[in-house]
Design a protein around this nucleic acid. Structure first.
Length: 310
RNA sequence: GCACAGGUGACCGAGUGGUUAAUGGUAGCAGACUGUAAAUCUGCCGCUCUUCGGAGCUACGGAGGUUCGAAUCCUCCCCUGUGCA
């Protein structure tokens, strides 16, 4: 018996993942599992370019609006929840479509993570404080003693990763890279079909600029103000692209126009990083175009039909 | 038209006679990423070669000049901003 198909659509922001997923979902009785680290939070609408209410009626969506902004959803949380959704969808005999822009979340879902100890906020803040007081190199030196292999791959200036490696190694009383050797827990029971959208860079950047500006005219500022009022200005997702710049404008640090330009910049840089990440993803069927292109949509539907029969 | 201020590599911006192809920053490109990841970090970044140690060429508005040596000093010209007319 052949395993059920799992479609994965990946690509940078504004590459047309949503359009493609809706088309395929409608045509092939699919349900969408969003893989977006910010869309998981309720009330973050405009800046996350979530699919509209109407679109979510056309094709069922999962892993959107699953937490309040004051909650912390990690890659591990996401992975567990998404796997549950996928097996439910599959049990209903429908096609699960993972639509991903968040590289780490996608990897956590498909390849799994290593079995690490739980977060320790206490330990983390102590380590961060240590780095601030005695310098990045000092903290990195500690890591070099605790987990030399980790120290070799993590740059001293990358404090968050140094802190994480130390947190894991110290609370587990064992080097983090040693724990890695025990392996990950990959998602099993499916045949993966990965489709990657990789439109022409310059065109993508234009599209990003346009979309970021539209977010502001669609009321990103008002939404941000509402979020601050409702949840306070220190909730984590307010640091996300667009919201961050909207906050800076509300605080008077940037003019309206400057905020837009900064948000565009941030989104372009992000798209670049996403592509770097996705280049490493194995077995991707790369499409050098936008997912909103009807020809691409047809091509993917045909591709899936072919796979489903084989 | 006179008086100041200024014209630096894609952009912003240091540099006022010599380890200067020229500090920084931004953009761009490439890369890393195992529970905050829309985060965080790294490398490259005038052109042409290179056995990767380097070699050559072109560069600081333009043209001359001073000097062993200039983005840096002098002269003239062009342009920009501000002030006085």
């Amino acid at each position: 018996m052949t395993l059920p198909l799992l479609l994965v659509i990946l690509g940078p922001t504004a590459s047309g993942k949503t359009a493609l997923s809706l088309h395929v979902g409608e045509r092939l009785q699919g349900e969408i599992v969003s893989c977006d680290s910010v869309a998981v939070y309720r009330d973050f609408e405009i800046g996350t370019a979530k699919p509209s209410k109407d679109e979510r009626t056309r094709v069922p969506h999962h892993l959107i609006d699953i937490a309040g902004p004051e909650e912390l959803i990690t890659a591990g949380d996401y992975s567990r929840l998404a796997r549950r959704s996928i097996s439910d969808i599959s049990a209903r005999g429908r096609l699960p479509i993972v639509v991903g822009g968040s590289g780490l979340y996608l990897r956590a879902l498909l390849d799994g993570l290593f079995a690490g100890p739980p977060r320790s906020e206490d330990l983390r803040s102590r380590l961060r404080k240590r780095a601030a007081e005695r310098g990045n190199d000092y903290l990195h030196g500690v890591l070099r003693r605790v987990d030399p292999a980790a120290a070799r791959t993590i740059h001293a200036n990358d404090v968050p990763k140094v802190v994480r490696a130390l947190e894991v190694s110290i609370s587990a009383r064992s080097p983090m890279t040693g724990l890695w050797k025990q392996g990950r827990d990959p998602l099993q029971g499916f045949r993966f079909l990965r489709v990657g959208l990789n439109p022409d860079r310059e065109t993508l950047y234009q599209r990003i600029n346009q979309r970021a500006r539209e977010m502001f005219s669609a009321g990103l500022l008002e939404e941000t103000r509402m979020l601050i009022e409702r949840y306070g200005s220190s909730v984590w997702p307010l640091n996300s692209l667009g919201y961050k710049q909207a906050m800076q404008h509300l605080r008077g640090e940037l003019s309206f126009e400057q905020a837009i330009v900064a948000a565009q910049q941030g989104h372009r840089n992000y798209a670049k990083r996403q592509m770097t990440w996705f280049h490493r993803e194995p077995e991707v069927n790369w499409i050098p175009d936008f997912g909103s292109n009807p020809a691409v949509q047809k091509q993917i539907v045909d591709l899936i039909k072919g796979k489903a029969e084989s």
